[in-house]
Each structure stands twice: as structure tokens, then as C-alpha cells.
Simulated scan of single mutants.
Amino acid sequence: MTLLIKDVSYSFMNEDKQKNQVLSGLNLTVEQGEFVSMIGRSGTGKSTILKLITGLLKPEAGTITIHGKSITLGDVGYMPQHDLLLPWRRIIDNIMIAGEVQKGLTITKEKARSWLERVGLLEYENALPKQLSGGMRQRAAFLRALLTGKGILLLDEPFGALDALTKKEMQTWLLSIWQELDQTILFITHDLEEAVFMSDRIVLLSPDRSLEEVVVDLPRPRTQEIQRSTELLMLRQKLEKKIAHDNS
């Protein structure tokens, strides 16, 4: 599914009743099966873009389409930074929730258990979220987004709260799932190494509302060894310089 953001602008009124421009004339295309990361300083509109794509927010100008059709609420899968698992529901019930609220979607317990097994969580199907580690909770939250059946997944800093070792494990795990399913992922991160390791392209949002794209020309499948490669380190340094220039 091709996601097209064309000439999109968005602003909001602050506490002083003044207009705060977040996005202005934004253009971005994400092709079927791409893994695209968005980076940039806080306040450059990354999370706002995801909320506009989900339909939670409405642009004041421009269009957002998927395969030529205007987006509506529920057209994409969305995973925010915090897992938002319902604390009183078992893990299997949490990941099946889309079938309860999404019209025309049926998620059988067999399908849910099959996915839990594939991601190493089957033995925790009857556990409550508080009984799982941070990495396990994020896997469950990703499965919940995945089981919506949407071809486009929006992930807002899903590994930001994890320790370094767990984060690296989750990065490799997510890439393996993505490569198997050929889904389209738009991913927000503040971790430049993570952006380079995961992505086909990186979109840098600047405080002046401009956008710059950087192609990641690293072989796939990506392995942990690539994270120590000269090519990855050079790309990371390139991004660091670009962001430092934005801050000057």
C-alpha cells in the first residue's frame, strides 16, 4: 500500500490563543513494503504526522491517501510509545481486542495463540501485562497492531523505554517480522543508530518545517554485525551533523 502525504499543513491554538504551526506543506511518499524512519528534534511534528495518518487529527490543508483513497480512522495499524495494554486483561485477550472493536474483523483464539508462539509469548498467554518484562509487553503491543490486518503500521518510538540490550533484540525481532510479512512501516525514533539499522529511508524533520530524506544503502537482512560496520557509523555521523546544523 502506497501512503501519500501531499501539501499537508497542521497547526493548533496554544494557551495564549496564538496559532502554533506544526507542519507546513509537508510532502512524503512511503511505498509498499518500505521501512521508513522519521527523526528530528522534539517539536518538529513527528508524532503529529502519525496522528494525522491515523485520522486522529485532521489536516488544515493538503491530503493524505492510501492507494489513492483518502484515509479514514482505522485504515492503519498504530502503536504508540507506551504499550497501552489493558492491565486487567490477559495478554491473549489484549492482542485479540481489535476483533472486538473493528467491524468485519475476526481474530480467532487459534490465530492469536499461533502468533504468540511465533514471538515467544505463548507460555504467557494468560499472564497480565504487569507480569511481563518491557520487551515482552512491546511484543504483545506490536502483535495487537499487527492483528488489525492493516498493511501500514505506524510505530511511535516503540523501543524508547527499553534498556540497550533489550532494544537491540527487539530491533532484530521487528525486522524479521517485517521482512516476512512485507508490510509498510513508518517508524519514529530519536536513536540515530536505530534509524540507520532499521530503515530503507530516513526522513529528517527540521525546526523550519523542511524535510530531508536520506537513503540507507545497507544490505538486507540486517544483522547485529552491521551495527558495528563502517558504513552504518558513517551514516549515523552524517545524520548527527545534519541535526547539529539544524540546531545552530
Rank of each mutant, 00 (worst) to 15 (best):
M1L: 13
D7A: 15
V8C: 09
S9Y: 01
S11I: 01
Q18D: 09
Q18L: 10
N20S: 15
V22H: 12
L26C: 14
N27A: 13
N27Q: 14
L28K: 05
V30E: 04
F35T: 00
S37N: 01
G40N: 11
R41V: 02
G45W: 01
S47P: 02
I49M: 14
L52S: 04
L52M: 06
T54I: 07
T54P: 08
G55V: 05
L56I: 14
L56P: 04
P59Q: 10
E60I: 15
A61V: 06
A61K: 14
G62F: 02
I64Q: 14
I66W: 12
H67A: 13
G68L: 11
T72I: 11
P80D: 06
P80V: 09
D83I: 08
L86S: 12
P87I: 10
P87C: 12
P87E: 11
I91Y: 05
I92L: 09
I92S: 09
N94G: 11
M96D: 04
M96Y: 01
I97T: 13
A98W: 02
V101H: 08
K109M: 03
E110D: 10
A112S: 10
W115N: 11
W115F: 15
E117P: 00
R118A: 13
V119A: 10
L122D: 00
K130Y: 07
Q131A: 05
L132I: 14
M136C: 07
M136S: 03
M136Q: 14
R137I: 09
R139I: 03
A140V: 11
R144S: 12
L146D: 04
G149T: 04
K150T: 04
G151T: 11
G151N: 13
D156N: 07
E157M: 03
G160N: 06
D163C: 02
K167D: 00
E169T: 06
M170A: 03
M170Q: 06
L175H: 06
L175Q: 06
S176T: 10
I177S: 12
Q179W: 07
E180H: 12
Q183I: 15
I188P: 08
I188H: 10
T189M: 04
D191W: 05
E194T: 01
E194H: 09
V196Q: 00
V196K: 03
P207L: 05
E212Q: 13
V216R: 04
L218Y: 03
R222E: 07
E225N: 12
E225Y: 06
I226D: 11
R228E: 11
T230P: 09
L232C: 03
L233A: 08
M234Q: 15
L239N: 03
E240P: 01
K241P: 01
